[in-house]
Design a protein around this nucleic acid. Structure first.
Length: 256
DNA sequence: ATGGTCGGCTTCCGA
């Protein structure tokens, strides 16, 4: 079974690329982030005609997450137990959707960006991660994958210029500790060993052409999921050319 | 420090 995760940066503007990507790589389950649409706005007819089921959640033009599966899609859950709600000044609540696909529990996650370390969104990000980690301990005993845009660079190797990013969000010790807490708790990041390199490049300053990016999209597996992983890759081709998302998809291969 | 480029309920905001 092939699972993929992709911050698509608007599903409506890239639905053709999504359909082509699924077929090009024979993907069974695709987790999407930053769909940037409410459920009723999503262009799903093409996917459904191709035999894919879709579960999506979005409440406005910001963010939004979805799961696309051709191996079944059941027990859909929007948000995780304890997921903190937003205050008056924070935007967009759609951050997590989970479902069982092909016997695997998959969560499409859009970890809050954080903006800046002195911003309320940064505090929310750390709170969100702490509550996800608490909720996710219950899922370790089953084959489970926590996939998506984590908006964290776990090491300096995951940043094209660590000096430039000092004191910025994505690289602070607190964010790295929040990510490490998942690993310490029993989750395994299953893509890095097979697929080194960045997964995100800013649109401006020709960051992709110069390979000046960040590694922020990850797949964390429970023990029974991680032991089935026998490959992974980053689809860098998808980031090239006109009309690309600023993230490349990450694909994971699971043994049957 | 600044600005660069995208998408979207577009003349600003969020990333």
């Amino acid at each position: 079974m092939r699972i993929a995760t992709w911050n698509v940066n608007s599903l409506r503007s890239r639905i053709d690329r999504v359909e082509a990507f699924l077929e090009r790589h024979d993907v069974d389950v695709l987790a999407l982030q930053e769909t940037k649409a409410r459920e009723d706005q999503l262009p799903l007819m093409g996917l459904q005609a191709r035999g894919y089921d879709v579960a999506a959640h979005g409440i406005d033009q910001w963010n939004g997450v979805a799961l696309v599966s051709r191996v079944g899609l059941s027990e859909v859950q929007v948000g995780f137990p304890g997921q903190p709600g937003w205050g008056e000044t924070l935007k967009s609540e759609a951050r997590a959707i989970g479902a069982t696909c092909g016997g695997v529990r998959i969560w499409s996650l859009y970890v809050p960006n954080g903006r800046k370390p002195d911003d309320p969104h940064y505090v929310y990000k750390l709170d969100w991660l702490a509550r996800l980690r608490e909720a996710s301990t219950e899922w370790l005993d089953a084959p489970t994958a926590l996939v998506g845009d984590w908006n964290i660079c776990p090491t300096d190797d995951d940043v094209f210029d660590p000096a430039q990013f000092r004191n910025s969000t994505h690289v602070t010790p607190a964010e790295r500790a929040a990510f490490q807490a998942f690993l310490d708790g029993g989750w395994t990041e299953v893509t890095r060993s097979y697929a080194p390199g960045y997964t995100y490049w800013d649109y401006y300053r020709q960051r992709f052409e110069r390979d000046r990016g960040l590694k922020i999209d990850f797949v964390l597996g429970s023990p029974s999921l991680a032991e089935r992983v026998n490959g992974a890759f980053i689809d860098r081709e998808e980031r090239a050319g006109q009309g690309a998302s600023d993230h490349a998809p990450v694909v994971v291969e699971l043994a049957d």
